[in-house]
């Protein structure tokens, strides 16, 4: 709980985040077709993970904190997944309105 990270670690994370920001701007100019958004989200997810693990110190925290931190994202997947599960299957039946 009272883990103290070194300043050096914080600077390393900071530089990584800046580089990843540059990278996300760079890849936005490349066309990966259907993979454009997944690539952008993967970089954003990596940046968020670095902030959560090191700046927020989850890496050095109790397992409970890890579970709590993860639970919000799991519940987001439930919300997104089941709602989009409705919209994406609406056309399967092949006639309008159903």
């Amino acid at each position: 709980m009272s883990h103290i990270s070194s300043k050096r670690l914080f600077y390393t994370i900071f530089v990584s985040l800046i580089i990843l920001t540059g990278l996300t701007v760079f890849v936005a100019r490349q066309d990966f077709g259907a993979m454009n958004t997944p690539v952008a989200l993967a970089i954003a997810g990596l940046k968020a993970t670095l902030v959560i693990l090191y700046f927020m110190g989850v890496r050095y925290n109790t397992p409970l904190t890890k579970v709590v931190a993860a639970s919000g994202f799991v519940w987001l997947i439930i919300l997104f997944g089941m709602t989009m599960g409705d919209y994406l299957t609406r056309s399967w039946l092949g006639f309008p309105g159903r």
């Binding site: 519940w75 439930i78 089941m82 409705d86 299957t89 609406r90 399967w92 039946l93 309105g97 159903r98």
Partner: peptide, 22 residues
């Protein structure tokens, strides 16, 4: 209980496949 909410929406425009799962 977080996975069943669509059963309130069977007669909305919700897809019947989603309805089936709910």
């Amino acid at each position: 209980g977080f996975l069943v909410w669509g059963h309130h929406m069977f007669v909305s425009s919700q897809s019947i496949y989603a309805g089936l799962v709910f």
